[in-house]
């Protein structure tokens, strides 16, 4: 028999699933940020409003992206016929639905409070939903990792802890980057300082997780950490998407830069982080395909 013959089937997923995972991570991270904002603080209230609106918009665009990858998109609603706790895809979709609900209600409240919508509509969302959106956000960001790791694809399976952990930390970092970006646009510099700090922490955690994954994954990790794909991953995610933004953000925290320069720095750091986050998901998906084609790692699968 041909030794190159694959044992496993490669994922059929492409850019749409990558995007879905990426946006799902940000969406979840925004859920966390909106909880952290202290509404008594003006800048924080503004940030909460921004993140709530953004998270709802993401929750609204994500289902079409998910649907677009289905072989029979018209049957998307079939996912609603059951709840299957053992299926990350099933619970993930339900998580997304619930998150959308919470984010929607919270957004309505924000808009009602700011007078865009009639003020009675603020009663749509009890305070508990703030916490609920955060928890659901953490779940949706984390599930995008479990979705991958609870499969037979050796690379993903080998990262059964690392990939969910990296997904949620990357999601949080990307959410912070997006929040920073939006805050800069809004001129909310105070908020920006905090989101950048959190972003640095999340990125550092993400970096540590990925490095540890590389260390422990051995042969299973090779499709991700070796070869041409690894080059892009290293450049865009590890260096461009984590190390450089951390450096830039540190710079911003330490050096009092002139405002336009500082704003530019935030924009650059945020865009790089977002780009790195996208490429991280892309790396997961594409290396997963390569990993499924490696016969040896499929013969003895990660526990």
């Amino acid at each position: 028999m041909n030794d190159e013959k694959p044992l496993l089937k490669a994922p059929h997923w492409g850019a749409n699933v990558t995007t879905y995972l990426f946006l799902g991570g940000i969406m979840g991270g925004l859920g966390l940020i909106q909880l952290l904002c202290d509404p008594r603080d003006e800048s924080m209230r503004k940030l909460r409003r921004t993140t709530r609106i953004a998270s709802f918009l993401l929750a609204a665009v994500n289902p079409p992206i998910l649907i677009s990858h289905l072989g029979r998109p018209e049957r998307f609603l079939h996912m609603m016929r059951i709840v299957k706790l053992k299926s990350p895809m099933s619970v993930g979709v339900w998580g997304l639905v619930l998150y959308s609900g919470a984010a929607g209600a919270n957004m309505v409240r924000e808009l009602a409070q700011s007078g865009v919508l009639p003020s009675w509509m603020r009663h749509f969302a009890p305070h508990a939903l703030t916490f609920a959106q955060a928890v659901l956000g953490a779940f949706t960001a984390g599930y995008t990792g479990v979705l991958l790791s609870a499969t037979a694809v050796p690379l993903w399976a080998a990262g059964k802890r690392h990939i969910p952990a990296a997904s949620i930390s990357s999601g949080a970092a990307s959410a912070c980057a997006l929040a920073s970006l939006l805050s800069v646009i809004e001129g909310n510099h105070e908020a920006c300082v905090k989101t950048e700090r959190l972003e640095m922490v999340a990125s550092a955690v993400e970096f540590a997780i990925l490095m540890d994954f590389r260390r422990v994954s051995g042969d299973y990790g090779k499709p991700m950490f070796e070869g041409p794909r690894a080059e892009k991953f290293r450049t865009v995610t590890l260096i461009g998407g984590i190390a450089v933004p951390i450096a830039l953000n540190l710079l911003g925290q330490i050096l009092p830069l002139p405002k336009p320069v500082d704003a530019a720095r935030t924009v650059v750091a945020s865009v790089l982080t977002l780009l790195g986050g996208y490429v991280l998901r892309e790396t997961f998906i594409e290396s997963g395909k390569a990993s499924a084609a490696v016969r040896q790692t499929a013969i003895s699968q990660p526990t």
Binding site: R81, I82, V83, K84, K86, S87, S90
Partner: peptide, 8 residues
Amino acid sequence: RVGMLPNL
């Protein structure tokens, strides 16, 4: 084995 409402 499988969770809620699995075998519809």
